[in-house]
Design a protein around this nucleic acid. Sequence first.
DNA 1: TTATATTTGACATTTATTGTCAAGTTATAA
DNA 2: TTATAACTTGACAATAAATGTCAAATATAA
Lengths: 102, 102
Amino acid sequence: METIGQILRNKRHELGLLLRQVSAYVDIDQAILSKIERNERKPTKEILERLAEILKLDKDELMIQFLSDKIAYEIVNEDCANKALKVAERKIKYLKSHPVKN
Amino acid sequence: METIGQILRNKRHELGLLLRQVSAYVDIDQAILSKIERNERKPTKEILERLAEILKLDKDELMIQFLSDKIAYEIVNEDCANKALKVAERKIKYLKSHPVKN
DNA sequence: TTATATTTGACATTTATTGTCAAGTTATAA
DNA sequence: TTATAACTTGACAATAAATGTCAAATATAA
């Protein structure tokens, strides 16, 4: 199972790009990119989108990896993780079909 | 679909308890409890456990509501919310079967 | 060695979460 | 109506978490 960091690093290597080149394009410190690739930090959504651009990765696919990482990370240690996911699924369906007015 | 706030408030009313009684037991400001019951704030895990005690609610069930609320809230606006949930499920299975040593 | 690439960690800054408090509203009883 | 109790609201403070910056350390290769 590939982490988001591994996906980013693998693709960067495939394209023969250096940390400093990608981080310059994305406009972040290369230390941060290094940490993102080693899953020591999570990218922001904005950073992720620019990474998708320069690394020619599918934005949606990357976003799915990003969100699923976040969710998995925050509940993996809970006994009821799987039940919580199921309920979350129902809640999301419900919320999407019952939009809230502001 | 019942929110966690509704569950807490309904049960409190069933038991005929006042905000100030429950908040005293849980040792939080009653303003916070009021907000939790109206879903304006999220309880911490610790608060939730004490609420389960005094309200005679099932701790695990409440934790499931709590976690699923959090997950649903943080991805409901994403187009790929459902896909992300599915992938998160796989990741959690993987992580649980491949424990990381520290 | 020298040069280049990456990693690490201390620290600062920013943003989000949580708690405190007093004043405000609502509902109900007297 | 006034008085009281229950609850709500919002401004603000305190704390914790996320994010960014930088320079020094480490690795890798020529």
